[in-house]
Design a protein around this nucleic acid. Sequence first.
RNA 1: GCUCCGGUAGUAUAGUCCGGUCAAGUAUGCCGGCCUUUCGAGUCGGCGACCCGGGUCCGAAUCCCGGCCGGAGCACCA
Length: 536
Amino acid sequence: MKELSGVINAVVAEVNGLSLSEQKAIVEKNWPETQKKHEVEEKKLSPLPNADKYKLITTRFSPNPDCVLHLGSARAIVLSHEYARMYNGKFILRFEDTDPKTKKPQLQFYDAIRQDLKWLGCKVDEEYIQSDRLEIYYEIVGRMVGDGNAYVCECSPEEFRNKTLAKDACPCRNIPPAEQLERWHKMLSGGYQEGQAVVRVKTELDHPNPAIRDWPALRIIDTKKYPHPRVGSKYFLWPLYNLAAGVDDHLMGMTHIIRGKEHYTNMVRQKYMYQHLGWEYPEAIHYGRLKITGAALSKSKIVAGIKEGAFADFDDPRLGTFSALKKRGITPEAIKKMIIEVGTKPNDVTLSWENLYSHNRKVLDASSNRYFFVAEPAELRVVGLPKAFQAKLPHHPEHSERGFREYAVTPSGDEKAVSLWIAQKDAQAMEQGQTIRLMELFNIQIQNKTETGVTAAFASESYTDVRKIKVQLIQWIPKGSEYPTEVVQQDASVTEGYSEVACKKLKPDDIIQFERYGFVRVDEVGEKLIAYYAQK
RNA sequence: GCUCCGGUAGUAUAGUCCGGUCAAGUAUGCCGGCCUUUCGAGUCGGCGACCCGGGUCCGAAUCCCGGCCGGAGCACCA
């Protein structure tokens, strides 16, 4: 056994001694058949139930425009959109803005939601707004009332509740359709005030779940008092969720409904309506809630926090809104991959940021150019430079074709000295006598450390000299060519520092990596560079 | 309380329908080696899980029963 492990270790050491490309070349030459397997298999969505039953797979995302979108909605959006694409189907955006009173929509959010979807890369094939479709719901209700499948109920909520809890019909239920139609016309013409009547869809009265029994489909809202942001006071009869969503899902040809499990009983309710109307209910998938550790994801908390001033705006980095994630440099690709990985299970999931970051890092590591940034700058004075140096810093360690930036480091004075900025954190970690390498420049030996900075002596130029002894490599910025920079952290605090002058050429929305610091998204390039911290 | 769901490593997921190939796969995380002018990436190795108790069976993560834990719904909200 010992002999064997000795041999194994020797072989492993030998292979590890080769560069990656050498290793690849050997494998390709000797065992070409193994290469295919190395392609990382992307996690895919499981097939949709009964997909072959439908000729055009149609899904939808149907938000209430009463807030911006956030990570909590990501499951509905990404899954619905991805499935539509996977089957060459259709993805519909439907605004469910039928509550002008308690979940009042706001005009600004219709467009904010469209923007969020666009950013996510979820292309909408068709868009509908329910507040434009009220007449359609009235027509369906009229049909159901006439058929005796729905009725106008004048009972108070309490009265009705007592009856159904006992599995009894309320007094309105058995009134013949002709008379019900009269009530319905009275309702349509404004003969009832808010709260005086409601339309109910008939179900089995003895359904085991009392919440299903004769559910309400349409109610009256005093829109003089509570005008709708889009249609004002034009309508006073507003459909409830199950009427509006149920009717639209059929009329819009929905084949697969993907929504949170809080809607499970709504499916049961709507199936009664579908039966009354002779429609076939689509396939429904109910997934669980998605949380992310530490982020405020509930609409009410987001809205309240902004109102109270706890958060600056909807894109405050502490929030889980898409606009905040965007501002922080989280890519839509990372979000999509994460959601696809999580899939459609009905379990609640609590994602950790690490999970999102790892997906994001894969995207960012390849795309982001590298720059130097020193947080909370300290001065480093190096004496005894034998000559002037020209540092050539690659924009990306694996992509030399992206070019370089160059900085001159020229000694001056009797001491042949030069002053540089380094990060406070690095300065503090230094000890007298220690050798440090300034990346792509030269090696120094620390002489003296004070409150205000560090003095060091030029040691040598060659990197290979110090590589073996694994000295600390740090980033630096020539004094006099610094670019004042603020990095907004994830908790909205601000870190001051200097980035290199090359950063002046960056543009807003560029995502870069500050070496040994982390990925940041460029927000403003002006007198100062303002960047948002994304992740390590 | 009532009506539904669900419980696989720190997190997420595969496997559960149709019991054996699962002493449980993958990703991420953590630890270590190698590589690398970033504390990044890459690469190699390691750590770590079937909620509990019964039953059926030659055999259970998978089927049955009971318990425990978690979630959702019980609005004239969506």
